[in-house]
Simulated assay, not measured.
Amino acid sequence: MTIAEAKQLCIVDYLASLGHHPQYVKSNQYWYLSPLREERTPSFKVNDRLNEWYDFGAATGGDMVELGKHLYRTENVSEVLAHIERYVNTTAIPGIRGTVVAPRAVETKMQHITVVPLRHHALLSYLHSRRIDGEIGRMFCKEVHYELRKRRYFALAFGNVAGGYEVRNPYYKGCIQGKDISLVKHSRDGTQDRICVFEGFMDFLSYLTLKQTGNEEVCINAPCDYLVMNSVNNLKKALVRLQAYPIIHCYLDNDLAGQKTTETIAGMYGLRVHDEAHRYTEYKDLNDYLRGKKR
């Protein structure tokens, strides 16, 4: 079995063949009691559309090969492949997935990518539709233009620490030039005592818009640095950065993934962590709160 063949095996089916079944399923997200350790509430998530897993309790995840490393307690890829092939050949597990959705496949086909200051009226209108202040959008976002299948497109671009960009418009959400967290410092002179953590940059921009209006129901009345995860799969990277902060404010989504992410951060940093999601408990996330869109 090759690495490519192993990655095409459906993780949900493979876990089922090992006797692990989801406790909760919603929108292609399968939640399990972790097969890697003992626990009482599910914190192991499989995204069946991307065929990727993430264990919030261990702050790690990946594809089928990475799962095999943890299941079979080895870093030797050849051993992992041998274990997987042996199990596939001796059980009734379904075969290789007929169609595999490769993460960020569209981005690999983009050509003639240019990043410029944000000024396109359609993108500013999109921010306005999300109730985000245009000047705040201009301050923290750029616009990216690219060619895909011989057609030209444009979108918002929000930079990350790896030099890549989170890309968003009303019809598309992705990343170019490398996925990573984003870190925004309050001051160039050093690190603040407090940091606010967001899952996506729309929530970060929503927070700044709320803060600009003097909203104290949600916002912290103190200087803060800001960390945007850009994906829960970046949690491990985020945990490293959060180590420097005495006070950590988590503004994550009011859903199971947001809850588990906050629990993981709190498990690492204890009383330093404040779960601020209760400030907008009737809303899925900060942008829905800003728009007045209740669940």
Results as ranks from 00 to 15, higher is better:
Pro94Ile: 09
Val80Lys: 07
Asn47Met: 00
Ala92Glu: 03
Gly57Cys: 07
Thr99Leu: 10
Thr60Cys: 13
Glu52Ile: 04
Asp48Cys: 03
Gly57His: 09
Tyr87His: 14
Ala92Asn: 00
Ile84Ala: 07
Gly95Pro: 04
Arg86Ser: 09
Val46Asp: 01
Gly62Ala: 12
Ile84Lys: 04
Ser43Gly: 13
Asp55Trp: 07
Pro42Leu: 15
His70Trp: 12
Thr91Phe: 12
Gly61Trp: 07
Ala58Tyr: 04
Trp53Lys: 00
Arg97Gly: 06
Phe44Ala: 01
Gly62His: 02
Trp53Asn: 03
Gly95Ile: 00
Leu67Ser: 08
Glu66Met: 10
Glu39Met: 07
Arg73Val: 15
Ser43Gln: 01
Asn76Leu: 03
Trp53Pro: 01
His83Asp: 01
Asn51Ile: 00
Glu66Ala: 10
Val46Arg: 00
Leu50Pro: 08
Ala82Arg: 11
Asn89Met: 15
Asp63Trp: 05
Gly61Val: 00
Ala92Arg: 14
Leu71Cys: 15
Thr90Tyr: 02
Ser78Val: 07
Tyr72Asn: 06
Glu66Pro: 06
Thr74Asn: 02
Gly98Ile: 08
Gly57Lys: 06
Gly98Val: 10
Ala82Glu: 06
Leu81His: 02
Leu71Ser: 06
Gly98Phe: 13
His83Trp: 14
Leu81Arg: 05
Glu52Lys: 13
Ile84Thr: 10
Asp55Asn: 02
Thr99Asn: 12
Thr90Gln: 07
Pro94Met: 10
Leu71Arg: 03
Asn51Gln: 08
Arg49Asp: 09
Arg86Ala: 11
Gly68Glu: 03
His83Ser: 11
Asn47Ala: 07
Ala82Thr: 07
Glu39Lys: 12
Ile84Asn: 11
Thr74Ile: 15
Ala58Lys: 11
Ala59Leu: 06
Thr41Pro: 15
Thr90Gly: 05
Thr41Cys: 15
Pro42Lys: 11
Arg86Pro: 02
Glu52Phe: 00
Gly57Trp: 08
Leu50Cys: 02
Gly68Asp: 00
Arg97Ala: 15
Glu75His: 14
Pro42Thr: 15
Thr91Ala: 11
Glu79Cys: 09
Ile84Ser: 13
Pro42Met: 15
Gly61Ala: 08
Ala92Pro: 03
Gly61Cys: 09
Pro94Ala: 12
Thr99Cys: 14
Phe56Glu: 08
Asp48Lys: 15
Pro42Val: 12
Gly61Ser: 09
Gly68Ser: 05
Asp55Arg: 04
Ala59Ser: 12
Leu67Phe: 05
Lys45Gly: 03
Met64Glu: 02
Val65Met: 10
Asn76Tyr: 15
Lys45Gln: 09
Met64Leu: 03
Asp48Arg: 13
Arg97Cys: 05
Val77Trp: 05
Tyr72Met: 05
Tyr54Glu: 08
Lys45Asp: 04
Glu66Ile: 12
Met64Gln: 04
Arg49Gly: 11
Gly62Thr: 01
Leu81Ser: 14
Leu50Ser: 10
Thr91Tyr: 13
Glu38Tyr: 14
Phe44Ile: 00
Arg97Ile: 03
His70Val: 11
His83Glu: 05
Glu75Arg: 13
Arg86Cys: 01
Gly61Leu: 01
Ala92Val: 11
Glu38Phe: 11
Val77Cys: 09
